[in-house]
Design a protein around this nucleic acid. Structure first.
Length: 614
DNA sequence: GCAAGGTC
């Protein structure tokens, strides 16, 4: 029998594929690593003996050689071309040992890492380690897009090859980020510490993700600073009339369809025209069904955005809690870009686990009947992990863990239910006569008929508004018809949720790292959190503003604090993946560009000092 | 004392 060594990217995957391929009949061995087990079983479909194990993310690390690793060993500019060595860090040595000894006993190595760029690269790292103990080992790659029995069996029986181009793209980015990070971090730190020895003792780091992140915070701050409120005018119209049923009056408000007018003279002339014949006539009454859609399945970025907004927790904190709940078996894998469930996904067994809860159990029970509807499908699929969902009932949690679990569970149940349904009434009105003076107004009413998902997803609000009773042709004299003045309001400073959204939209960081980059710019004192009421806003420090403003003077396309340069790196990685460029070409071109940026940046420090001393 | 990306 052929002996096959299967290596997954993380413990949860090795356990899951073992469960599926072995049909539950397997033996477990410990390894030198606390959290990694080796599983053995026969796989008769390919007449093989399987051992399944895993790594924990990347196996190797890169650093500069000894001649350049020390901070004052060289001019930072030399780091663009200094030799780089690859090592296995100490906390990964036990994993390496396990792979080497398992590979010795196997004829075939089957890579089961996630099917993305990083997964191909981790796969290559695994291959290199295994070949050192077994140079003859045959390498295969299992290709799967979800942990579903049929797919996993298919992957085991029809393996493909590792994709070297994808691994190369990751390698190029790794090297580039190390060179840039080190060169610019040392440049910034040396210069600023020398100029402000009293104020700046700590590291002034640069990173191709942390700087665009900082850039967003500074850009919004400057918009707020530069904001000047502008007055505008609009016609306000309302009708107060006695209610037909009980005592009291109702006030029906009408919105002017022209919106806001920024010139007082123009607004006043229109208003005078209306006042010559203010009798209002109902031109149309529309009554129609309307819906409020239930939410999409939950991705990591969405979890962090909504969690920050609704639970008021830092994105990093939310991800840490989700990670812990995942380790404890309560949640599915918390780092996913996927907002669509696989058609074969087993919703009912997961819903059944929630029926015991005192708060949402009754709702879950209804989803076991005709309350259920298959979730909407979003546009994203990382082909590795399903949307975040509860995998077991957790009744004992307290504090923030309870709140995060509750949010994820309510969100999952809401996804599996029907849209809220309502009845909307639109009253169109014209006032000011029938000639050029006439102006259009509108009033909206809403009756919520079926709350459906809203009953469990208590974070969404959808409230009814009394429907005014009008018929086409009705006429009335408005109780109030006046020209009102308003003022434009300043944009808000960024919240963490806003920043997560901007980073996601601009491709800065990944689902797993976005929260870390935000934490980094706070730790480095480029940004502070300011509480206003219950909301936390991000405010840049003088140092943060100085760095961004200084670099922005280099020009938009090359500024280190704009998303463009990172987008370019990302674009080149895609080209390497598609074979349109080699790893070497990507590196050479990027390094040359950043050397140019470096020289320009070095010339900006007087500007940066100036802002920082103000 | 430098990065970003995986993951524990």
């Amino acid at each position: 029998m052929v002996r096959v060594l299967c290596v997954a990217e993380k413990p949860s995957i090795s356990k899951a594929i073992t469960g599926i391929l072995s049909g539950g009949q397997f033996t477990t061995r410990n390894t030198g690593s606390n959290f990694i087990k080796n599983y053995d079983f026969d796989y008769p479909r390919t007449n093989a003996r399987f051992t399944v194990t895993c790594v924990a993310g990347h196996l190797t690390e890169r650093r500069f050689d000894d001649a350049h690793n020390k901070w004052h060993s060289c001019d930072p500019f030399a780091l663009f071309e200094a030799p780089i060595v690859t090592t296995i860090p100490n906390d990964k040595k036990a994993i390496e040992t396990n792979l080497r000894s398992e590979a010795r006993n196997a004829q075939t190595l089957m890579i089961w890492t996630d099917c993305d760029r990083e997964g191909e690269h981790i796969g290559m790292e695994i291959v290199q380690v295994c070949r050192r103990s077994n140079p003859q080992i045959v390498v295969k790659r299992a290709r799967f897009s979800a942990i579903i029995a049929a797919q996993i069996h298919n992957a085991a029986q029809n393996p493909v090859e590792l994709d070297r181009a994808q691994a190369d793209a990751v390698e190029a980015r790794t090297i580039l980020d190390l060179r840039l990070g080190a060169a610019f971090s040392r440049l910034q730190t040396f210069n600023l510490q020398a100029r402000f020895p009293q104020q700046i003792q700590e590291l002034v780091s640069y990173g191709p993700c942390q700087f665009p992140t900082l850039g967003f915070v500074v850009a919004r701050y400057e918009q707020v600073q530069a904001f000047v409120p502008e007055p505008f005018w609009y016609i306000y119209m309302s009708l107060t009339r006695p209610l037909s049923s009980d005592e009291g009056d109702e006030v029906v408000e009408f919105t002017w369809k022209r919106g806001n007018i920024f010139e007082h003279g123009v607004a006043f002339v229109i208003y005078e025209g209306v006042m010559r014949d203010p009798l209002a006539r109902v031109t149309k009454v529309t009554r129609k069904e309307t819906k409020k859609w239930c939410p999409l399945p939950l991705t990591t970025v969405e979890l962090q955005k909504s969690g920050n907004r609704l639970l008021r927790l830092a994105p990093k904190k939310i991800l840490d809690i989700a990670e812990k709940l995942y380790q404890e078996g309560f949640l599915s894998y918390p780092r996913t870009e996927t907002d669509q469930f696989d058609p074969q996904f087993d919703f009912q067994s997961l819903i059944a686990k929630q029926t015991a809860d005192p708060a949402w159990g009754a709702f879950a029970t209804r989803l076991q009947g005709d309350g259920f509807q298959a979730p909407r499908k979003g546009k994203n699929n990382d082909n590795a992990h399903p949307p975040i969902h509860p995998t077991a009932y957790a009744g004992q949690l307290v504090g923030d863990e309870k709140r995060v679990y509750e949010f994820i569970t309510r969100r999952f149940l809401a996804c599996c239910s029907k849209d809220a349904e309502g009845w909307m009434t639109i009253i169109d009105v014209v006032a000011g006569g029938e000639d050029l003076n006439s102006q259009c107004f509108v009033s909206l009413g809403l009756v919520v008929l079926e709350r459906n998902y809203l009953e469990v997803y208590t974070y969404d609000k959808w409230t009814g508004k009394t429907v005014p009773e009008f018929e086409e042709g009705d006429e009335f004299m408005p109780t109030v018809c006046e020209l009102k003045e308003g003022r434009t309001t300043s944009p808000s400073l960024l919240t963490e949720a806003d920043l997560v959204g901007l980073m996601d939209k601009n491709g800065i960081g990944t689902d797993a790292t976005i929260a870390q980059h935000i934490q980094t710019i706070i730790d480095r004192k480029y940004v502070m959190a300011r509480n206003e009421g219950a909301t936390k806003y991000l405010v840049p420090s003088t140092l943060g503003i100085g760095l961004v403003e200084g670099y922005n003077k280099i020009g938009f396309e090359r500024s280190l604090s704009k998303p463009q340069l990172r987008r370019e790196t990302e674009r080149m990685m895609v080209q390497v993946c598609q074979g349109q460029r080699t790893k070497g070409e990507m590196l050479a071109e990027s390094i040359e560009k950043y050397q140019d940026v470096y020289v320009r940046a070095r010339g900006q420090f007087n500007q940066i000092y100036e802002v920082c001393s103000s």
